[in-house]
Amino acid sequence: MGAIRKLVRSDRIAYLFVAPALLYMLLLVGYPILYNIVLSVQNVTVKNINSGEHIFVGLDNYIRLFQNGILSQSTVNTLVFTIACIIVQFLLGLLLALFLNRYFTAAKFVRGMMMMPWMIPMTVTALMFKFMFSTNVGIINQMLLALGLIVSPIDWLTSPVTAMIAVITANVWVGIPFNMILLTVGLTTIPAELYESASIDGANGWKSFRHITLPLLKPTIESVLVLGFIYTFKVFDLVFVMTNGGPVNATQLLSTYSYKLSFSLFKYSDGAAVANVLFVILLIASLIYLKFTYADEEGK
């Protein structure tokens, strides 16, 4: 009894509170990550998965995958997809945040409702955009035709460049509200007095944006961009449902390629190797992000 009472009084009881969650995550995330590394240096496929005769092959999987070209192409595609998405969603998100940060009646309501796309399951978003981008019934082709911008329907999802544009568009739709809300939070931390005194000094509009908003928003902008990179770089569902990496790997991302290797071709070790490439890049980005956001919190 005495020991229990002592434990209850001391700070060490914290371990008891944190242990279940920590163990859970170690078993269901930590262990799979390690196992994934092991898998990637073995030769596990559907043929030998049950036999247990897994041979150590070193970095052969990585070398072979990089040499056959699709892994490099997927890496480039993922970067193109990510960077294009971040730029567009950041700029549109910033414009919306600035606009809705002004005090008019509908601002709050509109800002709230615009969060909707962020909540919708990616599978559904993918389906909606697949429908809108479809060649014959798609509303996008219908509108472009009606406006006279194109003479015949575009095969959005079956030509390489337009397929990439289509998946980027769909992802930006989800990314805009995310950027907008984070930038709005950043904007509200800028004291209004700064703008008032600036306007007395004759600085308005672009000038006050350039010299007050932008510098003070810089920390928020940095974290929004890095966070955007992390969230976009790992996108899977959206592209998987819309194009499944096609046509001919034109929209193949690291995530979809890893899935294809593991679950369409049943080459589990190859799938694990591609997933590890994704993992390493994201780990680096995450650590950069944490350094940004927690650099100033360390002092507390």
């Binding site: 269901l28 995330v29 262990y31 799979p32 990550i33 196992y35 994934n36 898998l39 992390i230 770089f233 790992k234 899977f236 690291l254 995530s255 890893s258 899935y259 593991s262 679950f263 589990y268 799938g271 694990a272 997933a275 590890n276 994704l278 993992f279 994201l282 980005a285 995450s286 992000y289």
Partner: peptide
């Protein structure tokens, strides 16, 4: 921040 894709095959 980890993607589901990394855990899928081992899981």
């Amino acid at each position: 921040m980890l993607p589901v894709s990394v855990l899928l095959t081992p899981m």
